[in-house]
């Protein structure tokens, strides 16, 4: 199988700020890989480095096996990229852009394009500037999929779309008949979407890779404990796998990563009078990871 995306110790610093730190990731061909992370987690920097638009401070990034710093046009032709603004030449008609894109991509598949565009109501004679955000997203997706790319990177493609457009977008993305086994990198803040679409969940936080597994395995990593501590919680940095915690009605609600049932024993040994374990959903698990190092008052997550 081909490795679509490969980074090794990828690091990017802007002055004193580190946008991406020692980031090592490998994505194999196939499936939908969702990337979540709070704003500034380094997702955009990662994509920019993968596309060779930003040069890494150190480490390497490879796209379809080729060094991102010197991507050949041929490799670029096999990698689709859709950004959240759905940047398209505003002054051109939908028909003109499609014709232009078609001329660049030898593998262009018109039937895919037509099928995707069918989910949206795009008039080919309409100028892009006159399209709604949803229609523009649809046109963009139609072109990206019709290129029959090996890898398609979608950077928050449903940002700012209304419910209807968002649904059309997801349907078109997931159910358009495709020949090629396109690997999709899907970046979003919408947990609901992630839950629906993701085969693999990649969690980034502060420029570092926190998780790369199926969403179910990820959720299984996080456990939620409620304890009643007479003398307060032990120091946070001594709790194994500590993620977040809050105090509700005197009880301490703790989220920890990678802890088994014996964590209950640990809590008891450290002053908990009663201990209960609750289930967590994906959103909470992700949030716990993303807010781990953020200083929040106890009353909030």
């Amino acid at each position: 199988m081909q490795t679509c995306i490969e980074t090794h110790g990828l690091t990017k610093r802007y002055g004193k700020k580190t946008a991406l730190k020692d980031f090592t990731l490998e994505i194999q061909q196939g499936g939908i890989h969702a990337i979540v992370g709070s704003n500034g987690a380094g997702k955009s920097t990662l994509f920019r480095m993968l596309l060779g638009i930003t040069t890494p401070t150190s480490g390497s990034a490879r796209l379809l096996g080729q060094d991102s710093r010197m991507l050949a046009p041929e490799v670029r032709g096999r990698v689709g990229y859709v950004n959240e603004e759905h940047t398209l030449p505003l002054w051109m008609k939908a028909r003109q852009i499609t014709a232009q894109q078609k001329s660049f991509y030898p593998q262009w598949n018109q039937s895919i394009h037509d099928e995707v565009i069918g989910y949206f109501d795009v008039d080919p004679e309409q100028k892009v500037a006159g399209l709604s955000r949803g229609e523009r997203a649809g046109l963009n997706l139609a072109m990206a999929l019709a290129q029959a790319p090996d890898v398609l990177i979608l950077d928050e493609p449903t940002l700012g779309l209304d419910v209807v457009a968002r649904q059309s977008f997801l349907e078109a993305l997931m159910f358009t008949e495709r020949e090629a086994n396109t690997t999709i990198i899907y970046c979003s803040h919408q947990m609901e979407e992630i839950e629906r679409v993701a085969d693999q969940l990649i969690v980034m936080e502060k420029g570092m890779l926190k998780n790369n597994s199926s969403p179910d395995e990820f959720v299984a990593r996080v456990s939620y404990w409620v304890g009643d501590f007479a003398n307060g919680l032990p120091a946070k940095n001594t709790i194994p796998g500590y993620l977040t915690h809050r105090t509700i009605d005197g009880n301490h609600h703790i989220l920890v990563a990678d802890q088994g049932d014996d964590f209950g024993q640990y809590l008891k040994q450290n002053g908990a009078r009663t201990v209960a374990r609750n289930a967590v959903n994906l959103e909470r698990a992700v949030n716990a990871f993303l807010t781990k190092n953020h200083n929040t008052p106890d009353s909030r997550v």
Partner: peptide, 13 residues
């Protein structure tokens, strides 16, 4: 930013 990616990321030198 995004315009640049749109422009440069295509199968053209």
């Amino acid at each position: 930013n995004n315009h640049w990616t749109y422009l440069i990321h295509r199968p053209l030198a």
